[in-house]
Design a protein around this nucleic acid. Sequence first.
DNA 1: ACGTTGACAGGGA
DNA 2: ATCCCTGCCAACG
Length: 110
Amino acid sequence: MSEALPPDGEPDEYTEDVLSVVERIPPGRVMSYGDIAEYVGRGGPRQVGSVMSQWGGGVPWWRVVRADGRPASGHEVRALSRYAEEGTPMRPGSDRVNMRQARWDGGNEG
DNA sequence: ACGTTGACAGGGA
DNA sequence: ATCCCTGCCAACG
């Protein structure tokens, strides 16, 4: 059984923070696990990954990638079709996101 | 208390 | 480019 959908329980405050940030990432943009950890101000990349593993089904999880631009482990194929839909900038000849262009800092700029 | 695990990150070979 | 190791930190058995 995979955790494609969020559990019915109530998320704690940290989980809420992480998920709310992920929901704000614009289409065609991404944030790394570490970026999100810094943004929420506590925990680390692995904690963010843990939250996404459990609750990611309810948010645009494909917009959360590794620091090197690789999509979430085990979800590469699904992520790739989303990037194609959203026009996410990719590295040429690779299945990786171009972080230079696609990285979102939480601000309003493009 | 301890060892293992995990949707991670960074550095070296 | 890939593989391997270490650092990291919370959750589990």
